[in-house]
């Protein structure tokens, strides 16, 4: 289980990093997935660009209603709810503790998760649910892609191989947004069988905005649009949430069978978990 040989560069600027990518380099951020893939002979880069020395990429800023997460912001950062203002910080803090365990979170990055695009990734599900935007830089310039269009399949994204994911941007959530994150998994070490993140806004007794992100409910992260539609205008109630769960499970999700979770079971869990998450986001 050893990586095959590669050359190594440690660029000191974004421009140098982008040049290295143009020369065929693969990015090393936290390395918590890249090294795993190399050990398992799933990744054989000829050149690795270690971006850990690029200044500025570790910045986390919130301004004008937008949160910008630089490529080197580690999972760990989000464990303190104050790191990100408002309910978004609360949601991230609830989600992050379900990602691996502390030593992995000390190295792994949120942007790395989005680059890796594991279908069970918690961050990826939240990115699509929250209308995040992914910023990509290459020698050809910079472009932004909405998260909803970015994920194409397991470990597949719209990022071109020579593009550096420089930042992820999230609209901050309004202060009266209720949030929750729940995860169903087999042991403390396993990836999620299903995970659900939700953000609900209730005004004058009816739901005015709903965002539901689903991890490991398809070959890519999903936003549960059908489920959300059933909620808009409804009063927050157990039956409404159960209905939303049903919609998420039958209309939004496209579960892939796995050992210990066939499609029927997956669909069932999605329905249950979505309803539970919504209930927690907006206590009835």
């Amino acid at each position: 289980m050893k990586p095959s040989a590669f050359d190594y560069v440690a660029p000191r600027t974004v421009a140098d990093a982008v040049d290295a990518l143009a020369a065929g380099a693969q990015v090393l951020a936290g390395g918590q997935s890249l090294l795993l893939d190399m050990h398992l002979q799933r990744a054989h880069p000829a050149l690795v660009a270690d971006i850990n020395h690029v200044p500025g990429l570790d910045e986390l800023t919130a301004s004008d209603g937008t949160l910008t997460v630089g490529a080197l912001v580690r999972h760990q950062t989000f464990e303190s709810p104050g790191a990100v203002p408002g309910p978004l910080g609360d949601l991230f803090a609830r989600a992050v503790v379900t990602i691996a365990h502390p030593p992995i979170r000390a190295r792994g990055t949120m942007a790395g998760s989005l680059a890796w695009a594991h279908p069970a990734s918690e961050w990826c599900a939240l990115a699509v649910a929250l209308d995040a935007v992914v910023e990509l830089r290459s020698t050809r310039g910079t472009r932004e892609i909405p998260a909803g269009e970015y994920f194409l399949g397991p470990f597949q994204t719209a990022r071109e191989p020579d593009e550096l994911l420089t930042a992820v941007r999230y609209p901050l959530l309004a202060p009266d947004t209720g949030v929750a994150f729940t995860e169903h998994r087999r042991t403390g070490f396993s990836f999620a069988q299903v995970a659900v993140g939700a953000a609900l806004t209730v005004r004058d007794g009816v739901i005015t905005e709903a965002r539901i992100g689903l991890a490991n409910c398809a070959d890519r992260p999903l936003r549960a649009h059908a489920a959300e539609r059933t909620l808009i205008g409804a009063e927050p109630s157990s039956p409404a949430f159960t209905m939303a769960g049903e919609a998420a499970s039958t209309e939004d999700a496209a579960p892939v069978p796995e050992p210990y979770a066939d499609v029927d079971y997956r669909r069932h869990v999605i329905a249950v978990l979505v309803a539970r998450t919504l209930r927690e986001a907006a206590p009835v």
């Binding site: 398992l40 042991t187 403390g188 070490f189 396993s190 050992p259």
Partner: peptide, 24 residues
């Protein structure tokens, strides 16, 4: 667990073969 081809579905090592952790 096995695939139809008789190969164990444990390609992700200890992320597939789950040993109890302290959480359990």
């Amino acid at each position: 667990p096995f695939g139809d081809d008789g190969v164990p579905l444990l390609a992700n090592g200890l992320l597939d073969y789950l040993l109890p952790t302290y959480a359990e």
